[in-house]
Design a protein around this nucleic acid. Sequence first.
DNA 1: GACGCATTAGAGAGCGCTCTCTCAACGCCT
DNA 2: AGGCGTTGAGAGAGCGCTCTCTAATGCGTC
Lengths: 329, 329
Amino acid sequence: MNRPTLEAVAARAGVSKSSVSRVINGASTVAPSIRDVVLRAVRELGYVPHAAARNLATRRTDAVALVVSDPPKGLVSDDPMFSAVVRQASRKLEAAGKQVVLMLAGSDDGRARVAQYVAAGHVDGVVLISMHGTDTLPATLARKGLPIVSLGRMNPTVPYVDNDNLGGAGLAVRHLLQRGRRRIATITGPLDMIASQERLTGYTTVMRETGHRSIVALGDFTRISGADAMRQVLQDDPGLDAVFAANDLMAIGALRTLREAGRRVPDDVAVIGFDDIEAALYTAPALTTIHSPMTDWATATVNLLLGLFDGGPDTPVLLPAELVVRESA
Amino acid sequence: MNRPTLEAVAARAGVSKSSVSRVINGASTVAPSIRDVVLRAVRELGYVPHAAARNLATRRTDAVALVVSDPPKGLVSDDPMFSAVVRQASRKLEAAGKQVVLMLAGSDDGRARVAQYVAAGHVDGVVLISMHGTDTLPATLARKGLPIVSLGRMNPTVPYVDNDNLGGAGLAVRHLLQRGRRRIATITGPLDMIASQERLTGYTTVMRETGHRSIVALGDFTRISGADAMRQVLQDDPGLDAVFAANDLMAIGALRTLREAGRRVPDDVAVIGFDDIEAALYTAPALTTIHSPMTDWATATVNLLLGLFDGGPDTPVLLPAELVVRESA
DNA sequence: GACGCATTAGAGAGCGCTCTCTCAACGCCT
DNA sequence: AGGCGTTGAGAGAGCGCTCTCTAATGCGTC
């Protein structure tokens, strides 16, 4: 249990603490002979630097907080975006030698904890993931003065990487129109998220420009909300011939409702989603959707943060949207 | 940027560092008058204790590592278990005042990093998630002497919480037999994982006991592997009338293959999965499966670790399996 | 009124590391 | 040969906090 200290290594190697420190940190001004004897002592003792002590002395932590908006219990318990994005971000951060501290900012309690945690100097930077636009946390954190980026646009003060939500939604709607669909409904995400707003705007803009009436149902990015919204919109407007869901999960829910209602997809109603999650390949029929490159997205976001550490620019990045045509539309 | 220190608070409040420390840490031996003046100073200065300094002095970190076996690129990029389990575990750990350090132990590199990290005294305990049985990391970590638990059985030395994989698989197979199915195939998970082995054993045991021939195809818990395995097993044994997939993702893959092959589910071939992920409610037809309580599972695992911190027992926990009958079998 | 015993505040020695500053050693130039 | 620059090693003062130990104060007891 009694871990060896740097001092013990120094004693064993017969050199000063300073020299050991230099060797550990790879300073160039160290004679090879000293280097060798120190490294041997390190190996023999199984020495590993004490993290907290180093943090205290350097005032760096080499840690980054990954803040995820944890939805209220019951919502999106298995959000595929969560795992894809968190995984990729972790991978990239670890590759850059940063440790990843995962924090859920669902409740007010959680948000307070995050703010406290960041204030405690626990991390060198913050990656925010899919926060709601109304959240005050981003602003609070931004005020602390440490580097912070966001996956998904969210707060004007926070540099971000985002999908082209507007363009993607436009792509989807135009595709439906080209296929001869005329009564096209949309199922939105939670409207306090910018991504939802943009996807809705993309839809309404194209619909208006082409002289079609908008049919809007509210969802919250979960499968069940998609199923419910589909049911409602089907009731309100039985003659509709297409649906654009603001994400694939809701599209999957919509598919189920359509199946239950006896509507054939795409014959009676065309369905198009957004995100291109893996599950979209396995629906019946396979889901036509807008590809959003989760992996690239996470990578770009992490790179933006790492750049900030090195004094890089905080220019937002917009990833292009792409239509993936499968069977459902 | 210059954060106030405890000393600054002491000066402002006109008391000693010790008193401030006592107030911050909620010691009882402090007069209300002093408490008040200190708290006011804390508020006025916006003081937040410096984490590293505290860690150094106390030799505690209040942090727990969540080690996830990151699959090689391409596999299960959106594993629903990952998000459900990681989320719930984080929630519980945060509620207990622990910070969550997420680590991916996919590559050898990652494993080394985890070992190093734990050795550096960065965390007070470790939660391992769905590690492969052949992994040496658990043993390495267990040797460090700090509390460590595993979600899913894995290494004899590590206390765990697990599903009743054996019983669950038995439940599935017996259900198929009861429904009159006779040629029942199974699609396994990666066989270096204990969960896969147990689910396979559960299947083969019941098949043997009831005098039926086992038909086994290898998968790796991904949708695509389920689809591939289904295709293969269909070719080898065109007359089969049921499939037990070792998880829902592979069952979803199998459903697609069956659809493509023109087999009706459940009329021609019954399909049953394992895990009861949310997506199982949205397949066509809805997936019959073995419910494994992800949320309880994560909670129990975290509780086991928290118990260990307080000198509690390290008795493994086995969660009961339950059959959920839907449409596919 | 002196004494002992709680009770509560203050002093200060670490915790293990980094990093500046100092100093020794060793050419090299004039 | 003496002075100077350069390179590399050692000393030690922090980093901000905790926690033990000591001192002071108040109270009850005989």
